[in-house]
């Protein structure tokens, strides 16, 4: 048994799986937008932060949990549409590096707005706090949120796969991700595809916000920032341009960080980011196009 060999508990394994699931969703959210816009959205974490604050403030105002989650979806979707309209749209066609720096700016902008509006200390989302309690399954204690997030992530990924392979908008999206110009010539409507990608990416951000808040109800202005940085690395690891490699990359890095964080003793687990990003560099050097992609043709002029 792997679990016994590596000396990790079931709790750690479940936590790692759930973190992998959440990161997989975030990875798809980032990967979909990258596919159609060639834009790495560094500000994705701030969407999640906004969603988490919605849940936290809903619980401060005494709203029931479902209303908080609903508010989270509303706020995140509105914000991602606004971001598309104000930032992504004017930036279309710029080089990926310029767009990355621009979303970097947006990320810091939103973060400092959060500091200004909500303060450094953070707010606690108590309505979904009970999700942090353990469930007793056959003598093994596992946090509820771990099981919920594995289930939700699996459900979302299946739904997404169906959407991408079985519907016309999904087909358009995949075509646009491969070659935007050619697909437009063949009748794919650019705005519809981009809008769809931004919408789905926003929905996934809202789902991730809910689950990350379930894991850690203390919402601060830097909520989701570290996660986004790790997911971005994971997406690049897996391969940015296609949804499935991106998902696998996100899952792998989430799972790996969950397992390492649980298995390493505390005086070593503080160096976890170094291990993780060291691995990222190694993979990037060996497979610059990503772990889970076939060898891509060299881009010709």
């Amino acid at each position: 048994m792997i679990v016994a060999v590596l000396n990790i508990s079931w709790q750690t394994l479940a936590d790692a799986l759930s973190l992998g699931g959440i990161y997989a969703l975030m990875a798809v959210g980032i990967g979909l937008v990258f596919g159609v816009l060639r834009l790495v959205n560094f500000a994705y974490g701030q969407l999640i932060m906004a969603g988490a604050y919605s849940i936290a403030y809903a619980s401060v105002w005494g709203w029931p949990a479902w209303a908080g989650v609903l508010l989270c979806f509303g706020v995140v979707l509105a914000l991602s549409m606004l971001m598309d309209w104000l930032v992504f749209r004017p930036l279309r066609g710029h080089s990926p590096a310029v767009m990355l720096v621009a979303t970097f700016a947006i990320a810091f902008l939103l973060q400092s707005i959060a500091v200004l509006a909500f303060g450094q200390l953070g707010t606690i989302a108590s309505t979904i706090g009970p999700l942090n309690q353990p469930w007793d399954i056959g003598g093994v204690e596992i946090r509820k949120i771990a099981i919920v997030s594995i289930a939700v992530a699996a459900f979302c990924l299946v739904l997404l796969q169906l959407l991408l392979t079985r519907t016309s908008i999904g087909l358009h999206m995949r075509a646009a991700a491969m070659d935007f110009t050619t697909s437009r010539m063949l009748g794919v409507r650019a705005n519809r595809v981009v809008g769809g990608a931004v919408l789905i990416s926003g929905l996934l951000a809202a789902v991730s916000a809910f689950m990350l808040t379930g894991r850690n109800p203390q919402v601060t202005p830097i909520f989701g920032l570290d996660d986004t940085i790790i997911v971005l690395a994971g997406v690049v690891l897996g391969g940015l341009t296609r949804p499935i490699p991106a998902t696998l990359g996100g899952f792998t890095i989430g799972f790996a960080s969950g397992i390492l964080g649980g298995a390493l003793p505390t005086n070593q687990s503080q160096y976890l980011p170094s291990f993780l990003f060291g691995a990222v560099i190694v993979v990037l050097l060996l497979r610059p196009n990503g772990l889970f992609t076939r060898a891509a043709a060299v881009e010709r002029l």
Binding site: A233, Y271, L284
Partner: peptide, 28 residues
């Protein structure tokens, strides 16, 4: 030596990884 083989986004992410690693080591 190894990193300058990369360009574009891969270079951006790899240099970011360098920042993260150095920060992590100096911090602890």
């Amino acid at each position: 030596l190894p990193l300058m083989r990369l360009s574009g986004l891969a270079a951006g992410i790899a240099t970011f990884a360098v920042l993260e690693i150095v920060n992590n080591l100096l911090r602890y």
